[in-house]
Nucleic acid binder design. Structure first.
Lengths: 234, 234
DNA sequence: GATTTGAGTGCACAGCTGTACACTGACCAG
DNA sequence: CTGGTCAGTGTACAGCTGTGCACTCAAATC
């Protein structure tokens, strides 16, 4: 990408109809930026983010270490960009899965399916996020925590539209939403542990994911909001 | 501990009634070993295990880097020892909390209280374990996974003694057990995020933990084992 | 066409890393 | 008293780390 023989940049023909090889300067920059993100993700396949060095990422992206700073002021900033990349579209997709609140069952199936497709399409991203979620007190973990809180917030709002949940206090609603988000994360982990390509195992994992959510939600109609504290013995 | 002026080793009086300063050789060794574990835990207060160097740990423990190998063949081995230290007593304590299966409520309260005391008494250990749980594919993460599976296994066995759960298939039982273990881990994380010393906040966190477990368990009597798949619309 | 901008280069530096090697000296068994 | 064991020492080395600095040279701007 740097000093090598690069025949793609023709002398004239400045702005034609967006051909593959010819690029503006800022487009070229963004391409290198993406190369850095992709390089980092590659290296993160079997290691933690903290053990990742700037030099390593730069080398794999095909640039010299010091050029890294033209794109990110630190590795942490790159990490945050990776978090954003992961959740950018997913949040909206999951919200869409709950637009018409029919049955829990339908909502569960749609959400799990969306999550499944998204994880399989971007394994590296989700492996990174689930790993870094608790891995330290750095800015990356904090960014992930913020994103997850937004997921849970979205969900709490949507849950409030359901029959049995209409009367629940906000605290209980958020507790349930957190429980569901946690279950979804567990599903992500399950999927990442399932060897890719084994579609039978995938179906099993998805079935377990749906069952897990049903198990959480089956109690909803029988929960008495914040009455609590009494030992009812069963 | 090494060449420094060490007045504690008196010339004679070999094996008296276990005074503090006088030690056998293997006892001295084990003391250094413990110093290494403690040093590692100190350093892990705000960083990931992977970013921990052998030299650093050795220095904080008061020995020279190469002496580290007298105790552990690698940092990974030390990490595994830390995992073991964390779960060694806890597993039995939690089992004891479920010896007489009275009510869910009692079981919940006892378990949460045990976990609470244990976390507060060994914050560093639990911070380490919750962080490293997903942090990579290394031997440490694997050791943690094994321990957690044992916790869940214990729990599944004990759950099988309860009224409504007697007829459940093993799969469903394990799913429920995993759900509960996950909730307990979430509680650990909550406790570690709660500033230590704020007893009011502690009580709130414990209350949330109990409520979360109740929310999971309230559905148990209404779950129809593996009937599933049908969309029952609520 | 002349000038400015800025992505990427190459070198340099101090500081850290794991670990090989030969060593010391206190403890312990004979 | 003698000799072996072994926890801990000190030196050394190659390889990696982040980042400062002066640079090139194509693209963008005037």
């Amino acid at each position: 990408m740097g000093h090598a023989t690069d025949a793609s940049t023709l002398p004239d023909v400045s702005t034609a109809g967006e051909p593959a090889g010819v690029v503006s300067r800022q487009e070229r920059k963004q391409r290198t930026r993406q190369a850095l993100l992709d390089a980092a993700l590659d290296l993160l396949a079997d290691r933690g983010f903290a053990s990742l060095s700037l030099r390593e990422v730069a080398k794999r992206a095909g640039i010299v270490p010091t050029a890294f700073y033209r794109h990110f002021s630190s590795m942490e900033e790159l990490g945050i960009a990776l978090v954003e990349e992961t959740t950018r579209t997913l949040r909206g997709m999951l919200r869409a899965d709950r637009t018409e609140p029919g049955s829990y069952q339908g909502m569960i199936r749609a959400s799990v399916h969306t999550l499944y497709r998204q994880v399989r399409a971007h394994e590296g991203h989700f492996r990174f996020v689930t790993r870094e979620r608790y891995a330290g007190s750095g800015p990356v973990s904090r960014a992930i925590a913020v994103e997850l809180r937004m997921f849970a917030g979205d969900l709490a709002v949507d849950l409030a539209r359901f029959e049995h949940l209409r009367g629940w206090p906000t605290d209980d609603l958020h507790l349930l939403a957190d429980l569901i988000v946690t279950a979804m994360i567990a599903t992500v982990v399950d999927l990442l542990e399932t060897r890719q390509g084994d579609s039978a195992a995938d179906e099993r994992t998805v079935a377990v994911a749906e069952k897990r959510l049903r198990m959480i939600l089956v109690g909803v109609p029988h929960w008495q909001p914040s009455a609590g504290q009494r030992d009812r013995g069963d």
